[in-house]
C-alpha cells in the first residue's frame, strides 16, 4: 500500500511540474510579455523600450531559469542600478542583504497580480473561499439527489420508474451549464415568464448566501453532474440487484425495501464514489461558466479575468490551484477505491 501510494504521489508531482511548466511557457510567450510591458510601462513605447523593460524586470532570461525562479528552486534575480538594488525577492524598504534568496510558489510567494494590483496569494484565497461556499452547496444538493435517482432507477431494471429517471439523467447530461443556466434564469427570474422566484444574479450572495440568490447557480452546476453520477449508480445498482446474495435474501423472506436498504445499497455505492471524486474537475468547468453567467466573483470569475487581461502571475496561480484540484481528487479516488473495495489487490 505504501509503495502504491508513493508511486502515485511521485507521478502526481511529476505531472504537476510538467503542467505548470506548460502553463508557464504558454503565458510567458513573447507576445504576452510584450503586452505586459506595454500595459505596465505605457502603450506607446517602442520595441527597444519594451526589450529594456523586460530585461529590467527579469523577463529577459532563459525560460527554464524564470520557471525555476517562479517555482522557488532558483535564486531570484537581482539587479544593481545607480546604487539601487532591485530584484524578484526584494521589497522596497527592506535591506537587500536580509531579503530571502528564493521566493517562489514553494516559499509561498505567488507573485503580484497586475490587473487587480494585489498579491496573488491574497486574491486567490478570497475568491477561492467564495467558490468553496458554492461547491459546498453543489455537493450537498448533487450527491444525495444523484444517488437517490440512481438507486431508485436501478432497483427494478426496466420498470416505468427506471425508464423515466434514466431519460431524465440523459437529458441532464445533454444540457451544459450555459444552456441550463440560461433556461433556469428565463423560467425563474425573468419578467417574461413572471415567476421571479429567484434572483438572476448571485452578486448579492458574496455578502450573504440566501435561498433566492444562490439556488439557481447551485442548481445549474448540480444538474449537469447529477445525470452522470445517477447513471453510474444505476449501472452498479442493477448489477448488484442481480447478485446471488440478493436472491438468497429475497427467498429468505426479507422484504424488498429491506433488501435494498441493508444488502444492496452498501455494495452499490462503491463505484459511484470514484465517479463523484472524478466529477470535481468537471465541477471546476461548471464553476467557471456559472460564475461568469451569474456574476459571482469566485475562482472561475478570477480565472476568466486573469486570462482576459493578460495577468500572467494570477493566471499561473489559478492554474496551480486548478491542476492541484484535478490531481488530488484523482489520488483520493484511486486510494479510496482500493479502501472501499477489498477485492482489489495492489502491489
Amino acid at each position: 500500500m505504501a509503495l502504491f501510494l508513493m508511486r502515485r504521489v511521485l507521478t502526481m508531482v511529476l505531472t504537476a511540474l510538467c503542467l505548470t511548466f506548460v502553463v508557464f511557457f504558454l503565458t510567458n510567450l513573447p507576445p504576452n510579455l510584450e503586452k505586459l510591458a506595454k500595459s505596465e510601462a505605457g502603450s506607446r513605447i517602442s520595441d527597444a523600450e519594451v526589450a529594456s523593460w523586460l530585461e529590467k524586470n527579469g523577463h529577459g532570461r532563459p525560460l527554464l531559469v524564470r520557471y525555476g525562479e517562479w517555482l522557488g528552486v532558483v535564486p531570484g534575480w537581482t539587479r544593481e542600478e545607480d546604487g539601487k538594488a532591485t530584484g524578484r525577492c526584494l521589497t522596497p524598504g527592506v535591506d537587500p542583504a536580509e531579503a530571502p534568496r528564493f521566493c517562489g510558489v514553494l516559499q509561498g510567494n505567488w507573485g503580484y497580480s497586475s490587473f487587480f494590483k494585489a498579491p496573488v496569494g491574497e486574491k486567490l484565497r478570497y475568491h477561492l473561499s467564495l467558490t468553496g461556499v458554492l461547491m459546498f452547496w453543489v455537493i450537498v444538493l448533487m450527491v444525495p439527489a444523484s444517488l437517490l435517482i440512481g438507486v431508485l432507477a436501478g432497483m427494478r431494471e426496466g420498470s416505468k420508474l427506471d425508464r423515466s429517471l434514466s431519460t431524465f439523467s440523459i437529458a441532464s447530461t445533454a444540457t451544459p451549464e450555459y444552456v441550463s443556466g440560461v433556461i433556469l434564469i428565463f423560467v425563474f427570474a425573468s419578467s417574461a415568464v413572471g415567476l421571479k422566484w429567484f434572483k438572476g444574479t448571485a452578486t448579492a450572495a458574496m455578502d450573504g448566501v440566501t435561498f433566492d440568490n444562490f439556488f439557481l447557480p447551485v442548481l445549474t452546476i448540480a444538474l449537469y453532474g447529477v445525470g452522470y453520477i445517477a447513471r453510474m449508480t444505476r449501472a452498479s445498482m442493477t448489477e448488484v440487484m442481480t447478485a446471488q446474495y440478493i436472491r438468497t435474501a429475497r427467498l429468505k423472506g426479507v422484504s424488498f425495501g429491506g433488501v435494498v436498504m441493508k444488502h444492496a445499497l452498501r455494495n452499490a455505492l462503491i463505484a459511484p464514489f470514484t465517479v463523484i471524486m472524478l466529477q470535481f474537475p468537471w465541477l471546476l468547468n461548471g464553476v467557471v461558466i456559472v460564475e461568469t453567467l451569474f456574476n459571482y466573483k469566485g475562482f472561475g470569475w478570477t480565472l476568466v479575468q486573469a486570462a482576459g487581461n493578460n495577468d500572467i502571475q494570477l493566471l499561473l496561480g489559478c492554474s496551480v490551484v486548478a491542476v492541484a484540484v484535478v490531481l488530488v481528487t484523482q489520488l483520493i479516488s484511486d486510494v479510496g477505491y482500493v479502501f472501499l473495495n477489498p477485492r482489489i489487490r495492489i502491489s
Binding site: V23, L284, N285, V288, G300, A307, L315, S319, A322, L327
Partner: peptide, 12 residues
C-alpha cells in the same frame, strides 16, 4: 486530461 478544459482553451 489533468488540464482543466477551460484553462486550456484560454491558453490556446
Amino acid at each position: 486530461l489533468a488540464f482543466p478544459v477551460i484553462l486550456l482553451f484560454y491558453l490556446l
